[in-house]
Structure formats: C-alpha cells, structure tokens
Amino acid sequence: MARNSYQTQLADLRGEVTAMADTTRSRYDRSLAVLDSGDAEAADWIIEQDEDINQWYLDIESDCIELLALQQPVASDLRFIASSFKIVTDLERVGDLATNLARYGREAAGELVVGADIGPLGDTAGEMVSDAMEAYATDNAELARQVAARDDDLDADCRAASEQVVRHLMMTQQEGDRSVDTAVDDVSRALLTIRDIERIGDHAVNICARTLYMVENDDELIY
C-alpha cells in the first residue's frame, strides 16, 4: 500500500475523534448524575475539565487542516476528514452543554425535577450521541439513519416534558407552597435543562448527517 504514513494519520484521526467522543459522553453522564444529586464538587470538576475537551477539539481541527494542506486528500479520504472536522465541533458543543447541565444541577441542589422525569430524556440523548459515533467509527450509514430518525421522538418527549414542567408550576402556585421567585427559578432551570438535552440530540443528528456524507456521499441530512 502506498502512502503508509498518510494512511496511519487517517487511522489516528478516527481514533482521536472517537476517543474525544468517549470522553465527552463520560462527562455528559456525570452531568446527568449531578442533575439528580446536586453534587457541587462533581459539577465544578465537570466545568473545569471542559477546557480539556475544548483543547482536544482545537488539536483535532489542527490535525485535519494539516492533512488537508499536506496530503491533499480526495474522494472518501476527503469526505472522512471534512466530516471529522465538523463532527468534533458537535462534540465540543455537547461538552459545553454538559457543563450547562452540571451548573443547573449544582444550582438546584438535587431538587431539579419539577413535575417531569428528565432522566430518560437525558439517557436517550446520550445514547443517540454514542450510537452516532458508533456509526462514524464503523462507517455504518444504516445506523446513522436510524439514530437520526430517533430525534423526532426525543423532540416530542422534550416538548411533553416542558409542558409538564409548566403545568407543575401552575399547580404548585395554586397550592401556594413556594414563593413566585423560587418557582420561576426552578421552572426556568428545568426548561433550560430540557432544551439542552434536546440540543444534544440535535448534535447527534449532525454527527449522523456528516457520517452519511462520509460513507455514502449522501447529503440528505445536511441540508
């Protein structure tokens, strides 16, 4: 095989993107745990460690630019590098959203849930990211399509959860067992949490879109 060094660099790039995804997923899972526990120390650690993910993203982006400039890739190699370049941006955003969730959990001090069970939503979004990355890592276009199709259900569940949160607000206000300011803070935090989980699902879909382009030159999910 010609250009052995180049082929090694391509394999390394895939390994780096996949490793970054594993770490990002791990941070996200910790954030979901903080939503339940309100563990301030764990939340601070997640927020501080996000700088590592940001730097990892910049390093991989730099690797992609170097490959484009020096190896002038074409065909499937070009699509792979271009897709990797975009996917790390989504992973970096997932990392940012994980820090948001950690903040919400810390602020709520373990009492975030206001009339809606957010846990399953968080798990679904996390599984979508992991499955999208599995599709990327294994060139599995079919899996990418399946994961993307799951986003409609997540969106619907997130809408339903948001309605439950608002309904809960109205009911508790009628009961008069909390101050208005406290209720607004709780509801706002819960709605932001649901919104960020829904956005994580969107990033999973973006990863699927780039994976489909990478594997099949199919841009149906990009546009």
Partner: peptide
C-alpha cells in the same frame, strides 16, 4: 475526486494503489 464509482479509481486517487 469526491465520489468515484469504481473502487480501483478510489484506490488510485487516494494513493492506496
């Protein structure tokens, strides 16, 4: 250069052949 049909072309232009 973006999506050739023939695997031999893919291999040639990507330097695998």
């Amino acid at each position: 250069f973006e999506d050739p049909d023939d695997q031999r072309v893919e291999d040639y232009i990507t330097g695998k052949f």
